[in-house]
């Protein structure tokens, strides 16, 4: 069953091709309203699509913020078994959580970590695409990647630029989570502006203006740059709706439209 988020992301099509191929999806959230559930939703949709095209989807998860056990439990409740997928070589987990704390001497470690990480991703993508697989790279999250890079947003941007080249080279898609409110007081948040420019779909999770509620956990703004409007002319479209996160699914509904 399709919901509002699927429709906004363009996942409601009946084609056997993954609709986000070649695209960069950026999810922005804030302290009050986490956006991780959007990432979980995309992972779940990607790994368990309509049965026909299911077998050749492969996912690479670059995790800076949570251990595998967390993702495994969350996704299992959504109906997707990551461990089984990993055994089928359809799910690759890059654990960046347990990176070493940098010492005084090695200031350069930050960017070199990202360089070696990209090498690993590149090799994995090349190996997977040789088997004609359809690949998605998920990065959770960019704010922590910046910390790993010792605050060098240039190396983070370089990394993401390289990831973006993969989307055209191997036709894979990139999904990244970032925290928008970190940059709200920065005068010229180059990293965020660049990311928003690079992305083809921007999803922003925000709390309700009226505060938190039990029935409505927040609102989503989906800005789909590559969407065609009703006349068929290319343009961008903004979707706004509310959501409520549950263990096994997420409810999406228009403001006030909850039955």
């Amino acid at each position: 069953m399709d919901n509002l988020l699927d429709r906004a992301l363009g996942l409601d099509g009946r084609g056997d091709r993954w609709p986000l191929l070649g695209k960069v999806v950026l999810v922005e959230d804030c302290v009050e309203t986490g956006g991780a559930f959007v990432v979980h939703h995309i992972i779940k949709r990607f790994l368990s699509p309509q049965p026909a095209a299911a077998s050749n989807h492969s996912l690479i998860l670059v995790a800076f913020s949570q251990p595998l056990s967390h993702y495994d439990r969350v996704l299992r409740k959504l109906g997707c078994n990551l461990v089984a997928q990993r055994d089928n070589d359809r799910f690759l987990f890059f654990d960046m959580l347990n990176l070493r704390f940098p010492d005084r001497d090695d200031v350069k470690t930050g960017s070199s970590v990202l360089v070696s990480l990209f090498e690993k991703i590149y090799n994995a993508v090349r190996a997977l695409s040789a088997e004609k697989n359809c690949i998605t790279i998920v990065i959770d999250d960019i704010a922590l990647m910046e910390v790993v890079a010792n605050g060098s947003s240039d190396s983070v941007l370089d990394f993401l630029h390289y990831c973006r080249t993969l989307t055209s080279e191997f036709d894979c898609s990139v999904v990244a989570l970032n925290h928008g409110d970190i940059y709200s007081t920065t005068e010229k948040p180059m990293l965020m502006l660049n990311l928003e420019y690079l992305s083809s779909i921007l999803v922003r999770a925000e709390p309700l203006a009226t505060g938190s509620a039990v029935d409505v956990h927040g609102q989503l703004m989906v800005f789909n740059k590559g969407e065609h409007d009703r006349q068929g002319t290319p343009g961008s479209k903004v979707h706004n709706f509310h959501f409520r996160v549950k263990e096994n699914s997420v409810d999406f509904f228009y403001p006030g439209g909850r039955g």
Partner: peptide, 9 residues
Amino acid sequence: RINTQVPII
């Protein structure tokens, strides 16, 4: 929110 995606309101 450990091992879950549901926020506690």
